[in-house]
């Protein structure tokens, strides 16, 4: 089975964000980056499917030079090779633009399965995988916890709201968007890290893919969110803050 996993590099979760001078995005120069969390689960699912069915896992990433690190990490964990679509400014594209790049790179591979994360931590559009499926003309299913393949048919466990689930069957090839927590993530072994150095990373530009697109939805301005409540904040010495909080809960909120 040939499996493509779309991985995105995003800022570390605990990053402190500053708004860039343009007012349209964050200042990225002082941030550290990592693989988007659900994408790590998508990669894990792909590696497990390969262990069961044989075949190949290809990591696919659109991003600037720094994304090389995330690609190398995926190779160290066990992906067989990678495709890096080199885009200096991902934000100049909207989701359709990114999906067009990913679809154009995926198409000649004729993969049986394309896995993405269900959502990126930075943009949070939650739709790139679905759009890729539509562009490639293949079926998809979202928020997937498990996948089983038998005789060119895939049966997936899809998460619904409020603790409900559902199984769905589809004929391969398909795109699945993978939910976090669906598996236990593996670590890269020393051997894996060593091997990764010799694995193929194909670099390709958007122009070479012939997938030029303009953004249909533009970010005009980015800013700190507005508060919906007046929050009383206690800072400083933990003991004093704790005592103040108990006082408030008792006499002001009257909930103790």
């Amino acid at each position: 089975m040939k499996i493509i996993v779309a991985i995105k590099q995003v800022p570390l979760r605990d990053s402190h964000f500053r708004i860039a001078a343009s007012g349209k995005w964050i200042e990225e120069s002082d941030l550290s980056f990592e693989i988007n969390e659900p994408d790590a689960y998508a990669l894990e699912e792909a590696l497990q499917l390969r262990e069961k069915h044989g075949g190949e896992v290809i990591a696919l990433c659109a991003g600037p030079e720094r994304a090389q690190q995330t690609i190398r990490d995926a190779l160290a964990k066990g992906a067989d090779r990678a495709i890096h679509i080199e885009t200096q400014d991902l934000n100049a594209l909207d989701t359709l633009g990114v999906a067009q790049l990913l679809a154009a790179a995926a198409k000649p591979e004729q993969a049986d399965l394309i896995l993405t994360g269900l959502q990126s931590d930075d943009l949070g559009a939650g739709q790139t995988g679905v759009v890729v499926a539509e562009l490639l003309g293949i079926p998809h299913s979202t928020i997937i916890m498990q996948a089983e393949v038998r005789d060119r048919v895939i049966r997936v466990k899809r998460e619904l709201e409020n603790g409900w689930f559902q199984h769905i069957e589809m004929p391969l090839p398909v795109v699945l968007t993978i939910q976090s927590g669906s598996n236990k993530l593996r670590y890269a072994t020393l051997m894996g890290i060593k091997k990764a150095k010799n694995k193929e990373v194909k670099r390709i530009t958007p122009a070479e893919l012939g997938a030029e697109s303009s953004a249909a939805a533009k970010i005009e301005k980015i800013y700190a969110p507005q508060k919906s409540k007046q929050t009383q904040i206690f800072e400083g010495d933990p003991k004093a803050a704790a005592a103040q909080l108990v006082e408030k809960l008792k006499f002001e909120a009257r909930v103790l």
Partner: peptide, 13 residues
């Protein structure tokens, strides 16, 4: 954006 850490205005086209 960023899991609720920032908000943004979008102008659809």
């Amino acid at each position: 954006f960023f899991q609720g850490k920032l908000s943004g205005d979008i102008r659809p086209g």
